[in-house]
Design a protein around this nucleic acid. Sequence first.
DNA 1: GCAACTTTGTGCACGCGTTCACGAGCGGCT
DNA 2: AGCCGCTCGTGAACGCGTGCACAAAGTTGC
Lengths: 248, 248
Amino acid sequence: MPRGAATASGTAGARAVPEATVARLAVYLRMLGELADRGAETVSSDELATASGVNPATLRKDLSYVGSYGIRGVGYEVRPLLHHLSAALGLTHRQAVALVGIGNLGHALAGYGGFSGRGFPVAALFDVDPDLVGITINGVVVDHVREIPTVCRARHVTIGMVATPAAAAQGACDLLVRAGVSCILNFAPVVLQVPEQVEVRKVDLAVELQILAFHVARRHLAESAGEAGAAGNGAGDGAVNGHAVVQS
Amino acid sequence: MPRGAATASGTAGARAVPEATVARLAVYLRMLGELADRGAETVSSDELATASGVNPATLRKDLSYVGSYGIRGVGYEVRPLLHHLSAALGLTHRQAVALVGIGNLGHALAGYGGFSGRGFPVAALFDVDPDLVGITINGVVVDHVREIPTVCRARHVTIGMVATPAAAAQGACDLLVRAGVSCILNFAPVVLQVPEQVEVRKVDLAVELQILAFHVARRHLAESAGEAGAAGNGAGDGAVNGHAVVQS
DNA sequence: GCAACTTTGTGCACGCGTTCACGAGCGGCT
DNA sequence: AGCCGCTCGTGAACGCGTGCACAAAGTTGC
């Protein structure tokens, strides 16, 4: 990590879009898609914000990061905003996705319609198991992991997903990196080591459950211990602090 | 949201553990498990932090939230810390999990060994499809969604997972809430409406990919625009700004 | 054409989370 | 036993993200 140097200001010049904003923009995009399907012409920031589960001011600020196309007194035109957001999120070109690890989770991901339906066709599948290599899932043939560099380059894969067991994840990741993949979505419960240019996002289902388990325990604790007065059915005092819904 | 009143200090008294800290504690716990399997006796905050992909200071502060059991000059004893963290995260009792929606993703989640292996046995499965109701996955029979309230109560389910299509998610969520489930992990691409006491976490795979796509696009942009020198074959410069790895 | 209402865009402040830096305690060595 | 080196625990500062509140701008009604 850099010390004090380069206080994030100098670099590109284009105002960097915060990570959290990018995540929300993707949600807005989906909501806009639904609105467009429903035939809506315009949306106010209030409507779109409540539908997305965020504060209206946050939404407006988020949209302002990518340049504002709203009409004061009216709201946002659904179709233009949808296209604009798509462009801002880099969805103008379909991004080919490679998936390594066709186990339990991998198989589901390979068959998941939500990816290709939203511009992310799963273009390559890999595993080491000889019984899996050669089979076809959703029209894509499973190749051996050693083919990752050649196949990924040939099919212009830009995003990799790692759904292997923990022990194999780093190796799969290394192969993807060697294939020129610069963004990786990691489902394996390990912290991947990657060169600086490569971006990794981690989705850890067991951790998600543990976070919830913590809240269950805390709730039980607070409920059995402290509560004396009040109905205890949740609302009211606000003893236990603030935000009930996280909706990360 | 409250204005100035109750500046988060007065409340319960027990220092509230930040959400982000809880998420990291779960990661530390896993790493400690691996270390214990490997026969390690002690770990320093530096080792555990790098293994978990976080700053050592952050790790120490995180651990201090749940009471510190470290030994100055030595580090942390693996086994005691592991037990202590398990207790702090509410893993002393196994939390029964219910899964609604046995589609592509749901089937994989039902068969995923990582849950029951880490203290979260999948104790109930639900769907509306008559072809699915009655079949057995990993020793658990799929029940009809209408059975959610009775079955969940009978099996002491504390955590619910929603893996239905978007249109059915809210209904499934409502049934889980009525069954007394207070924590829900939502895989459907909708913002669930829940009463205040219920906590929802969202895992949205399409959004994750879109976030990565954004970074791919930004990288392409920066690379084609500004860059003049360098090989461009992947390794090397690292000119593009700051943090490459997010590992959320 | 003017006034009033509606809704966007954004400067500002608050609070949270992360990181640094340093004091406090513990083990090992002489 | 005393000193030294190592590592934890934590107070303080920085930076970021969020939410409020208000000005700018456009639209509708008269």
